[in-house]
């Protein structure tokens, strides 16, 4: 092979690898991403039951009920609409009523959100980005307000 041919082989090989990788990435992106909704977006956009999604909002005061064993139910609100969430598992340390929370899971036929993962803010200043944004849009939360 001449110098030029060798170089072409390599470049083509590289492009082939890149192409395959790009294909895998696109496939993975279309299959694995989860959309983020607030309770009012869920009611507005008619999310179909069974679709995996992330739900973000504040845990409504007085709504957290511990069930049998490690079951818990609580209500997530964006101060406009609310949605009931059930979760079987251990809630994070910083899960509190009135605080921000993000739950991942599906909506069942009855309109209840069945979560398999619940994230609470990691520290005093942490608020999931998506949640902060949508709460800001609705004018109920701002970065400046850190009451401690």
């Amino acid at each position: 092979m001449t110098r030029k041919q060798k170089r072409m082989t390599m470049i083509l090989g590289g492009l082939a690898v890149l192409g395959i990788a790009a294909g895998i990435m696109l496939y993975a992106l279309s299959g694995t991403i989860t959309f983020f909704y607030t309770p009012s977006e869920i009611t507005e956009e008619k999310v179909s039951p069974g679709q995996r999604l992330r739900l973000g909002g504040l845990v409504e005061e007085g709504s957290w009920i511990r069930g049998e064993g490690t079951m818990s139910t609580f209500v997530v609100t964006d101060t406009i609409k609310t949605i009931k969430v059930t979760y079987n598992g251990q809630l994070p340390d910083l899960f509190r009523e009135g605080q921000g929370v993000v739950a991942e899971g599906i909506i069942d036929g009855g309109g209840t959100f069945v979560a398999d993962t619940v994230l609470a803010k990691h520290d005093e200043n942490y608020m999931p980005k998506e949640l902060a944004d949508s709460l800001k849009e609705k004018g109920v939360w701002n970065e400046g307000a850190k009451t401690q």
Binding site: E61, T79, W141
Partner: peptide
């Protein structure tokens, strides 16, 4: 003062 803080408002 606390218009951006829902808990405070509550």
């Amino acid at each position: 003062r606390f218009k951006d803080n829902p808990q405070a408002i509550a």
